[in-house]
């Protein structure tokens, strides 16, 4: 099981267009939908907002990890987006958010996938990991960082 199983260069957007929280979530969901990995993007969007209502996934340190568990998801997938200017995501530390990981998993997921996502979440805590994501020049760089850190 490798990182490549749920992310590839077409799921990485180096410069997000949106400037508002809900728009970012929508934009990331559209990326996943364009890759034909979800069956109902409205449903996924609704679930993502439900999750945000329970408590923001803007975990601070410039990172947000909106996530959805839904039967509308075909396979566990991560979409990555970056905003150069930062977005007000209602983050826990009330600072702008730059790095976004949208995580979508089917209702029934293998432990293997979930463990990999858990590993990714753990990495996000490390300063140098986040810094290298900020400095990456291309989707290939991002993929490389995710794989090799």
């Amino acid at each position: 099981m490798e990182v490549k199983e749920f992310i590839n260069t077409s799921l990485i957007k180096m410069n997000l267009e949106s400037s508002k929280k809900n728009e970012v979530i929508k934009e990331l969901i559209n990326i996943v939908a364009d890759n034909d990995l979800i069956t109902d993007s409205e449903e996924v969007y609704k679930k993502a907002l439900d999750r945000e209502a329970k408590g923001t996934t803007g975990v601070g340190k410039g990172v947000a990890i909106p996530h959805v568990k839904s039967s509308a998801v075909k396979k566990p997938t991560v979409a990555f987006g970056r905003s150069k200017d930062g977005i007000d995501y209602g983050s826990m530390d009330e600072k702008p958010t730059y790095l976004f990981f949208l995580i979508v998993v089917p209702e029934e997921s293998h432990d293997q996938h979930l463990k990999l996502l858990a590993q990714l979440s753990r990495k996000l805590v490390h300063d140098d990991f986040r810094e290298s994501l900020m400095e990456a020049k291309s989707p290939e760089d991002i993929l490389d960082i995710l794989e090799n850190n």
Binding site: T57, H67, I103, V105
Partner: peptide, 17 residues
Amino acid sequence: CPTGIAHTYMAAESLIE
């Protein structure tokens, strides 16, 4: 955390770090 996908592990890692 409620979904048990991300926050649980980030919190754990933060504490360890």
